[in-house]
Write a protein that binds this DNA or RNA. Structure first.
Lengths: 334, 334
DNA sequence: TTGTATGCGTTATCAC
DNA sequence: GTGATAACGCATACAA
């Protein structure tokens, strides 16, 4: 079934059929009705390949997701999905390893899929500086800040993570904690971790709390298992910690399990704070104290921004969304 | 950049260029080398739309996911993704609400995307019987059984869920439990729930354990929040339960939180058992007793089966994968 | 308002 | 082994 068949069937030319099917003007009401009915009757659908070949573009928005064990991104993809569903565009999702080069992957996919725009869920500074110039469609970097990148087609939406982390650590300090350990990502590879690390450092320095990265920081991937491992490792170190801040909820949950397995109670013996605000955090025992990023807001703003740019607004915006610090049962005063 | 440019650049005709780029025979080694080098030099990539328009098909495998809060499917998608990445095919993922009609959606997407084959993550019996005949590409139903469907292009891969559930309940009975409640899906809408429910009934009947669905069964969606709600509801009922079996780990975790909030301890006061074997289950306190489905095996077999059929084997297979019952801390003998 | 004709980038069928 | 050339299904500029 092609527009040619539809043309033969209705007596109108393919031109008119095409115009009707694309809701274009300059078609008589009668022709429109006739053709629409005929199309509906046989469940006609335009051939996307022919359409896109002719128009030299797809109507896809591409999401590039760094790391699939990061549940936050899973939730984000879902939220983005439902927002894009309300637009004329299609969403194509591409997952890749946490530490691969997302920009090179994007360059590749742009050639292959010719998307209208790109959403990066997570991104590494070095990769962008090295190769982003090769991408010419509008992009939005989500959960990282692109303010000081020299690219006119790259917007960003993220939380004020460093500030939120700083305030979180400071609140731990207010609660009486002096021996605080951090579990986070590999700083040399993860900008997100770097930014959150800055927040930690600032809090420690301004409050004269001793913190020696080599001793008090453990690197891990963003997963339950690695959070578990990292906490176990902390327990082998000399210093005795009363609080652990984890740069992701999944790590925090792994850490809580590790502490429990070692006979420590959370929060009685050790307070644990995560980052992300995953739904599951509300349901574990104890409820997880965390820095919550609004998945809905992140999704909404990034899709809106991308749409604006796809549709010609041509603005490069860097939005900061406030993170919400949620003090729940897993942290306490000492 | 098109094969025309490549043709002009290398002096060979578009025919030869096309042959080289598709690894076809009847090309001289010299031509092959020259053209491959030229293509590599400018990072040439065939235009998928033109290709698929000409060939009248895509090289996509489509996954239709029912319900996105079901973490099991999330894990499955990931596992499937990595397996398909090792094939010549591309994976396109489509998410839909837990209770929509996945078959109608599939019919629609087949017209639109012309995939080589379909993977259904979850499926409803009624929907298949009503409309599946409209789909003519190879399909695999994952996590549900399609043995008694009259379709030659529908295979299936799933666990022996009813048996596993029956054994699980029987083991609860062996542990001394007599007052057992069930939290599951809406039976009229979820075949999966129906099948697991059969397992429950069989166990109760064969062991003469009283079970009245109206009193001892609560319907919920597959999410943390609904598991929480369902458990709270159980607590308002007359009967006092010593064990709750939940048809999904997410429900079980919600239920544990609800019990804890009501001053009950798990497993001391109430044992809780889930279904799925999600990674997080290993990390919550207490570790979740569960019926574990091997995500890896499900993914592997369903992709292999689909590939076989796409590549012409034309067999319709229904595989049963053994579920593993894992007794962990959230259940105990009384 | 409608019809006609051209070309998008590829593959595949022929001739050579 | 290689080179023309005709489709594939559609959008669109232009003619009517």
């Amino acid at each position: 079934m092609t527009i040619k068949d539809l043309s033969a069937q209705t007596g109108y030319s393919v031109g008119t059929v095409s115009r009707v099917l694309n809701n274009q003007p300059n078609v008589s009401e009668k022709a429109r009705r006739t053709i629409q009915e005929a199309a509906a009757a046989c469940g006609f659908q335009l051939n996307t390949n022919a359409q896109q070949l002719k128009q030299q573009r797809s109507n896809n928005i591409l999401v590039i997701v760094k790391g699939s064990s990061n549940q936050l991104f899973g939730a984000l993809v879902e939220a983005i999905q439902s927002r894009v569903a309300a637009t004329p565009y299609h969403l194509v999702v591409d997952y890749m390893d946490e530490y691969y080069n997302e920009v090179l992957r994007a360059v590749q996919l742009c050639r292959e899929k010719k998307p209208l725009g790109l959403l990066f869920l997570g991104g590494n500074r070095k990769h962008f500086l090295a190769d982003f110039e090769r991408i010419d469609v509008p992009c939005v970097l989500v959960t990282s800040d692109a303010t000081d990148f020299p690219f006119r087609n790259l917007s960003s939406v993220c939380c004020d993570e460093d500030l939120a982390v700083k305030q979180t650590i400071e609140h731990l300090i207010d609660l009486g904690h002096r021996d605080i350990a951090i579990i986070g990502g590999y700083l040399e590879r993860s900008d997100t971790s770097g930014r959150r690390f800055e927040g930690c450092l600032a809090a420690f320095q301004e409050n004269d709390i001793p913190f020696v990265p080599e001793r008090d920081y453990v690197s891990a991937r963003f997963s339950y298992a690695e959070g578990y491992r990292a906490a176990k490792e902390l327990l082998t170190r000399q210093r005795k910690y009363t609080a652990i801040f984890c740069m992701a909820d999944v790590m925090a949950m792994g850490a809580i399990r590790a502490l429990t397995d070692s006979g420590l109670r959370v929060p009685d013996d050790v307070s644990v704070v995560g980052f992300d605000g995953l739904p599951i955090g509300e349901f574990i025992v104890p409820r997880l104290a965390t820095v919550s990023q609004s998945v809905e807001t992140l999704a909404q703003r990034s899709v809106e921004l991308l749409r604006d740019n796809i549709e010609g607004k041509n603005v490069c915006v860097h939005e900061i969304i406030p993170a919400q610090i949620q003090w729940k049962e897993s942290a306490r005063a000492i």
